[in-house]
Each structure stands twice: as structure tokens, then as C-alpha cells.
Design a binder for these strands. Structure first.
Lengths: 209, 209
DNA sequence: TTAAATTTAGGACAAATGTTCTAAATAATT
DNA sequence: AATTATTTAGAACATTTGTCCTAAATTTAA
């Protein structure tokens, strides 16, 4: 691993543990036993490190989603995509926990996130349409209901890490499983009997892993 | 207004606009045209100011909720409580936007929030029971469904301000109305036909205001 | 009115932070 | 083997921040 990579790695650990505010470039350098000057040679500003980490987060998400979406859309695909997304988000949890502060400090990230959000929303719309066509979820009781649903899903998807940091005591794997299930269960009340059956089947299959 | 009150007032404005990190005690003092020494006489530490503001948030929430809950439980009550809560949360939005950072910086707040969360959850459980008894919402399709629902509701309730800061362009009142509706609409898929009717009636009544 | 308490202004000081610079050490290239 | 480029360490510097102190000004109480 190059020094540059190790800086990113160490910074991620420290940011995740303490948040961006109390972690300085000097702390990162000390943690990995290199000089402060050396660290500044690679990343002269803390913002550059955060920017790189945000870039890595997005890259990992893109890669994972692309891999999953290469298959046929299905309920299982949605579950897998959710689980994969949550796992990656948790890996970079400081970004979501300090989201507003980061967006204010580094404007381009805020802009990018906005675009990304629209893309994700459109992707989700396609999946909803698929689930409707397959008769797995009911048609809208109220106009715009599924648009609301998507917004709700993404708020929880972006901020469960913050809520978990404050409220959840327990190992990371349990935390991840709990909140993945919590978010995904948003869809349950929309299921048709057929959809519910498919969901419960997948749940059982997943528990065997 | 005493100097002490004005400090709290000014700090709230600055924190809401810029977040806690970039706002220093000197900025607050300068903003209100008093000396830095004077400000430190009243609040020697930034944490004390944040603590006071958190205290005020909780006090306002308690007061509002108590007033609303003095009446008979109803769907309208739940809507009013949601709207009132969201309004107060938005007034102190920096607390929710910088939640994780604040909890880490000031541990007692984190502890208090945990307790508060359990209280709110229990209150909500009572309301759910009431709505069930009145036949306004369906009984659980899946065990633990309404517990999940409450958790989902509170994640959105706590973090819509963060999402809105990044994604929503528009005046505060619209923002507030949009996210209040978004959170409340979580309950729609659980409505019985009777519940849906009651909801739509209340929606219309509310739009006339 | 006088004495005491409170409030205010301004400065002092150490510690921390972001940033830049220089020179040594190491690696790569010719 | 020589030289060029890259990487590293360490120091230096201005700024900022939290904290404390003193003395003046103002208000309150006796």
C-alpha cells in the first residue's frame, strides 16, 4: 500500500471514530507514524482527503450497483442492492454523519450529491414500476404515494447511520442487519399477498446464510 | 431581552446558518456588538451555549406536546403534534444537522436524547393502539411492523432537516410543509378505507387554513 | 448617597491548526 | 555510477481559538 493510500485508509478510520472536526492532519500523520510534512506533501488540505474519501464512496456505490443491476430486476435484486448500499455507507459512515457540515465546507460535493440523488431516485422508480407490473405491490392509494415512498426510503437510507450512532448499542454486523431490515421493511405495507409471500420467502432464504 | 438571552438568540441564528463548527464565541460576540470578554462572562464555553440551546429545544417540544396531548387522542392530534414538532425542530435545525457531532462533544446530551427517544416511542405506541382500536389503520401484516414504523417515522422526523438542507430549494414554509407531509404520509399505506377517508378530510381542512 | 454586586471591555497567553519551506533521504532513470 | 525525480522529516510562520485576568463601567441594594 502506498503512503497516499494509507493516508486515506487511516483518515477514514479516524473520521469514522471521531468525526471530521476533531481529526487534524497532524493526528492522521501521527497515527500512521509519518511526519506531518510528509502527509501535507500528499494532501496539503484536510478537504482534499475528505474529497478523496467521498470520491471513493461514490465509486464503490457505482460499482456495486452496476454489478447488481446487470441482472434482471427483481425483489431479490432490490434487497441485495439495499444491503450492499448500506454496507458501503457504513464503511464511510462519517460522510453521512457529518453530511451537512461536509456539504457546507466543500460545495462541489453538495452539488454532486444532488445530482446523484436524482439518479438514484430514477433508478428506484424503474424498480417500483417493475414491482407493480409483477403484481408484487399494490397500485397507489393516493397520488404520488410511491414518489413519497422513495423519498422516505432515501432519507432513512442516508441517515440511519446517524441514528444508529446515537441509539444502537451492539456489534456492527447486528447494527447493519437491523437497519437494513428496518429500511427495507418500509415496503411491506405496499405488498400484495403475492408480494408478501415472495418477501417472506426471501427473508427465510437470507437468514440461512 | 437580557444579554444572556440575546447571546442564545444570536448563537442560534449563526449555528443554524453555518453549523456549529465554524461559529466561534468571538463571532457571536461580534455579531451582537459586545466584547468577547463579556460573552465569556455569561457563557465561558461554546458547549454551554449549545447545551442551553438543546435545553430550550427540549423544553419547547415538551410544552407543545403536553398541550396537544391534553386533549383526546385522534388522527388530527397526531397530525398537529407532527406539524408542531417539525416546526420546533426546524427552529433549532443545527442541533439535528450536527446531531452526531454534538452528541460526541457533549455526552450528557447524547444520554438525554436516548431517554427522550424511548419516551417518544412509548407515546407513539399509545397513539398506534388508539388508531387500531378506532379501526383507522389495519392490524399488522407482519409481526413488529408498527414498531418498525415508529422507528422509521423518527428517523425521518430527526433527519429531514439534514436532507432538506442539501436537496430542497425554496422558502422555509414550503420546506416545512413538504417534509411534514412526507413524514406523515408514512402512515397512509396502513390506513383502512375509513382511516384514509378521515385522513383526506383532514388534509382538505388543513389546506383551507 | 454610599457601598457592594454585577456586568462589560479589552488584553494576555498558551495551545492548536493550516500552510509553506528547506534540506535530507530514498527511489528511479539514464 | 551519476543525476534526476520523488518522497520524507522537521521546522517555521501567521492565525485562530479557548481560557483567564484586570480594571472600568454600570446597576442594585443598603
Amino acid at each position: 500500500m502506498t503512503t497516499k493510500e494509507k493516508i486515506i485508509d487511516t483518515a477514514l478510520q479516524l473520521f469514522n471514530k471521531q468525526g471530521i472536526d476533531p481529526v487534524t492532519t497532524r493526528h492522521i500523520a501521527k497515527e500512521m507514524n509519518i511526519s506531518h510534512g510528509n502527509l501535507c506533501y500528499h494532501y496539503s488540505k484536510k478537504e482534499d482527503i475528505i474529497g478523496q474519501l467521498y470520491h471513493n464512496l461514490v465509486a464503490e456505490l457505482d460499482q456495486e450497483i452496476a454489478a447488481i443491476q446487470s441482472g434482471v430486476p427483481s425483489l431479490e435484486m432490490l434487497m441485495q442492492a439495499t444491503a450492499a448500499t448500506f454496507r458501503i455507507q457504513y464503511k464511510y459512515k462519517f460522510i453521512l454523519q457529518d453530511m451537512v457540515a461536509i456539504m457546507r465546507k466543500i460545495e462541489p460535493i453538495g452539488q454532486h450529491f444532488k445530482v446523484l440523488y436524482q439518479q438514484r431516485k430514477n433508478q428506484f422508480r424503474l424498480i417500483i414500476q417493475y414491482l407493480l407490473m409483477q403484481g408484487l405491490i399494490e397500485s397507489e392509494k393516493v397520488k404520488g404515494q410511491y414518489d413519497n415512498f422513495i423519498d422516505q426510503f432515501y432519507i432513512i437510507g442516508d441517515f440511519w447511520v446517524s441514528e444508529a450512532e446515537i441509539l444502537f448499542d451492539g456489534p456492527d454486523e447486528e447494527k447493519l442487519a437491523h437497519y437494513t431490515q428496518l429500511a427495507f421493511s418500509l415496503i411491506i405495507p405496499y405488498f400484495t399477498p403475492k408480494g408478501l409471500e415472495a418477501y417472506q420467502y426471501l427473508q427465510k432464504a437470507h437468514q440461512k446464510d
